[in-house]
């Protein structure tokens, strides 16, 4: 029933990965199962239209607008959908807030689940064996590899994305940003800070303490 074979069909493809995908794409295109223009449109979508700038918009708005933040933490799916951020791999959203007491960090130990409409395609390290294996058991050691050291008083809460719920971290608003508007704040929100492996930038360019 789980279809374990010793002769997987994929072994019929060329050994070089670039040639392997070329062979698959050519085969599917010639059979009318794939439209090459659609492939270009998919790549363009995730290279230019859907990426961490979407999540940064949400975070900067939450830092600026307490009512928005309260609604976001209550029902993120509805709130981000109203901003136009919805779709594949972002159908069920939960936003988790970093505080002095709790630092949140997101992983998918079983594959690479990630909130695509808000952050785009996951970075290579997020999909790596090292991150998937270690984020749950040694999150503080992983954070150190990203240059982040948390106070002992701060607990770490790691979210393992085992279902179709996708998690976005709301980083702490850095000190010294009281006078900044939403656009300026957005520039301080990094991709990694919304995964929880970094803190938001400070206006002077340093990572927040």
């Amino acid at each position: 029933m789980p279809h374990d074979h010793s002769d997987h069909p994929h072994s019929l493809l060329p050994p070089d990965p670039a040639l392997r995908i070329k062979a698959l794409e050519t085969l599917l295109t010639r059979k009318g199962l794939v439209d090459p223009a659609a492939l270009d449109a998919i790549i363009d979508t995730y290279e230019t239209k859907i990426g961490p700038q979407n999540g940064a918009h949400v975070v900067a708005r939450a830092w600026s607008d307490p009512a928005f933040k309260a609604a976001l933490l209550e029902d993120a799916t509805a709130v981000v959908r109203a901003l136009g951020y919805y779709g594949r791999q972002g159908e069920h959203m939960v936003v988790v807030e970093n505080t002095e007491d709790v630092h949140n960090m997101v992983v998918c130990t079983l594959c690479s689940c990630y909130p695509w409409p808000l952050l785009g395609i996951p970075p290579g390290w997020y999909k790596s064996d090292a991150y998937r294996a270690r984020a749950v058991r040694a999150p503080r050691a992983v954070l150190a590899e990203f240059g982040v050291t948390l106070p002992r008083e701060t607990a770490v809460r790691v979210w393992d994305s085992t279902a179709e719920v996708r998690y976005l971290v709301l980083p702490q608003r850095p000190d010294g940003t009281e006078g900044l508007d939403e656009t300026a704040l957005k520039g301080l929100v990094t991709r990694d800070s919304m995964i929880g492996t970094a803190l938001a930038r400070r206006p002077d360019g340093a990572a927040a303490p």
């Binding site: 995908i21 995730y46 395609i121 990203f146 991709r191 990694d192």
Partner: peptide
Amino acid sequence: PVIPEPEGVLFDAEWHKRALAV
């Protein structure tokens, strides 16, 4: 160790894009 990458790096090779899209 986990090896962080610069923000903005989406694909490490051109064929990765095609593999995703196909």
